[in-house]
């Protein structure tokens, strides 16, 4: 089925309003990558199984490959380029690096978005592990990713209990 009719949509992407004309059948991941220049928009399966495409839509991590871009009209979208705020971005990047949670880096943006959600919602480590189980990584064996997130949670707990 051809579908060439274009729809006008707008959303906030990492704090900046975007207005686009897109075909209804295009996924959010496709549009973020090809139209908005987001290099973190990684398609690992396009079938909702792997989570490489995870972005934050209105504060919740979603699979960008399963959402049509037109469904994101009006949404607040944040990607691994920015996450919730610069502090969180820096902290997550450092923890991933320190714990060797990156090998090829293809799954990394998706896991960063999950880590950001875990921190924002103050999840417990068990809940965090459940959340991280949404995504696949084929390189690291995951335990470095869990260590990175555990470290971030511990640092947060320390800050929270401080003066």
């Amino acid at each position: 089925m051809e579908d060439t009719e274009l729809h006008t949509i707008s959303f906030t992407l990492n704090g900046v309003t975007q207005r686009l004309r897109v075909a209804a059948r295009r996924s959010l991941t496709d549009v973020l990558g090809q139209e908005c220049g987001m290099k973190s928009a990684h398609m690992g399966c396009g079938q909702g199984d792997c989570g490489s495409c995870t972005v934050s839509v209105d504060g919740v991590p979603i699979r960008g490959c399963l959402l049509f871009a037109v469904q994101a009209d009006g949404a607040d979208i944040r990607t691994a380029e920015a996450l919730a705020n610069p502090d969180s971005l820096a902290a997550i990047r450092n923890a991933f690096k320190k714990h060797r949670a990156i090998q090829c880096g293809y799954c990394t943006p998706g896991f960063m978005v999950l880590a950001d959600y875990i921190l924002r919602n103050e999840l417990s480590l068990d809940q965090a592990i459940q959340t991280l189980s949404a995504n696949l990584c084929r390189c690291t064996g995951y335990s470095p990713i869990v260590s990175a997130v555990a470290d971030l949670l511990a640092a947060r707990a320390e800050r929270g209990s401080g003066p």
């Binding site: 290099k39 990607t79 880096g105 990394t108």
Partner: peptide
């Protein structure tokens, strides 16, 4: 030592072939 690859990958400034045009 830390990986020299990581900053590039973390800042998503890296070009996987899918994002090349």
């Amino acid at each position: 030592i830390d990986r020299v690859e990581d900053d590039d990958l973390l800042q998503a400034s890296t070009r996987f072939v899918g994002s090349l045009a």
